[in-house]
Simulated assay, not measured.
Amino acid sequence: MVGFKAALINEIEKLYKKKKVLVAAIVSLLFIVLGQLSIVGLRSGFGVRGVSSTDFPLLVLSVVVNTILPLFTALVTIDAFSGEYSQNTMKIALTRPITRLKFFTAKITAVMLFVAVNLIFVMFFSTIASFIFNSSSFKALDIIKIIISYLVTLLPMMVLVLFIVLFTNILKSGISVFFVTILLFMVFKTLGIVFSSYSGILFTSMMNWYNLWIISDVSFIKILRQFMMLLSYVILLFTGSYYLFDKKEF
């Protein structure tokens, strides 16, 4: 446990020093500001009502989790694996008294912390913006729905992270991993739209599974089914990724 904690702290420090983290925060904040200004403009210029106190943070989440967050998650994940492969720094890290499994898990945990912090950042500022412009319709239940929505989004994002990690251990070039994962992400999204009846087996179609948690008529059967599907993805991708990582010679 001590070795894992030391490795995790080291990975977090490396992530903290990356400019990608700051850029992701700035882009997310700009998106929130521009989104809220656009809604205010539509409301005042065209008489459109806009969105309620709950709708805006969820609208932001829906867009961010399908565009900005996957993009920066891919960059951070690739940098954590392919970046160290190409710079030959992975070998130095593995000379420490720590198993490969703990080291591998520490890297994934650090990336997931990046995702979690990003989601919290977006949730906080989108909620604040919504409260400022829609304070009259704000209720305590809205806060609970928003928190639940952002919290459960971590699971499909974990699947995406492991999906990218798998390719970092297959392809040597970080650029190749980036384009392949982005291309496959877009292909899966398209397949989910074209073949909507089979979209349930694609993890990209589960990015908005938080909707199942906040609807008035909650279906625990559907939630459990998608949870088991996502959990299966996590187990398979983690096992496959670690197997390839363990077989690598550094």
Rank of each mutant, 00 (worst) to 15 (best):
K91Y: 11
Y210K: 06
I170S: 08
S197L: 12
L22T: 13
Y16W: 10
G50K: 08
V63P: 07
R43L: 08
I193M: 14
N169L: 08
D142R: 04
Y243P: 02
I26M: 12
K91M: 11
G35A: 01
L155T: 00
L59D: 06
N208D: 12
F114W: 03
K248T: 08
F163V: 04
I68S: 08
N208H: 10
L8T: 07
I132T: 08
G200K: 11
S62V: 06
T204L: 01
P70H: 03
V51Q: 03
K248V: 05
R100Y: 01
D55K: 09
I120P: 03
F56I: 01
V165N: 00
V64P: 02
I164F: 08
K18V: 11
V2L: 15
F103W: 11
F203A: 03
P97F: 03
L119K: 00
I32K: 02
F31G: 00
L154M: 13
F178V: 02
Y233N: 02
N169Y: 00
V2H: 15
I120E: 10
I147N: 03
I148A: 09
F195G: 11
I214H: 05
A110S: 08
T239F: 09
A116E: 01
L101Q: 11
R100T: 05
F4V: 04
K17P: 03
R43M: 10
S82K: 02
L15V: 07
K222A: 15
V21E: 00
G47E: 09
I143E: 04
A25G: 10
F125R: 04
D55L: 09
F163Y: 04
T54A: 05
N169I: 06
S44N: 15
F163I: 05
I223C: 07
M207T: 02
T109L: 12
S82M: 01
V48D: 12
S149I: 06
V122N: 02
V180P: 00
K248R: 14
M186D: 09
L184F: 14
I215P: 06
K172D: 11
F133H: 12
G3E: 04
R96V: 12
